[in-house]
């Protein structure tokens, strides 16, 4: 019963992040929404580590690694964004269309 409410919260946050990724034009905000989706997944992992079928610490350890990878992803994403900004003079995601056929 408790598990379903935590999973529902994670699903709501994930959907909000998905909507933001699909609609935001600013590339920084797209990265932000991706971070929100990653956080929703982390809530799921920790909820399963307490209320799951076999509750143990593995969920928390997995979350630690996910946070590490997400931090690395944010750093590299910002670096790519700055390099793109230097070339294209804009941070709007829909202006990055030089690979469009």
């Amino acid at each position: 019963m408790y598990l379903t409410s935590y999973l529902a919260l994670a699903a709501i946050l994930f959907s909000i992040g998905l909507y933001g990724v699909l609609t935001k034009r600013n590339a920084v905000m797209v990265l932000f929404c991706i971070e929100l989706m990653l956080n929703a997944v982390n809530i799921n992992l920790i909820a399963f580590s307490k209320f799951g079928l076999f509750p143990n610490l593995t969920g928390q350890i997995f979350t630690l690694f996910t946070i590490t990878v997400a931090a690395a992803e944010a750093a590299v994403g910002i670096a790519i964004l700055i390099a793109l900004y230097r070339n294209k003079e804009t941070a709007e995601a829909d202006q990055y269309n030089s690979m469009k056929g």
């Binding site: 600013n26 920084v28 990265l31 932000f32 944010a74 910002i78 964004l81 700055i82 900004y85 941070a91």
Partner: peptide, 15 residues
């Protein structure tokens, strides 16, 4: 960290 990094990203690009 991530919020500050994103703020840097916001401030280094023009909006």
């Amino acid at each position: 960290a991530v919020s500050i990094l994103m703020l840097f990203g916001i401030m280094l690009t023009k909006h």
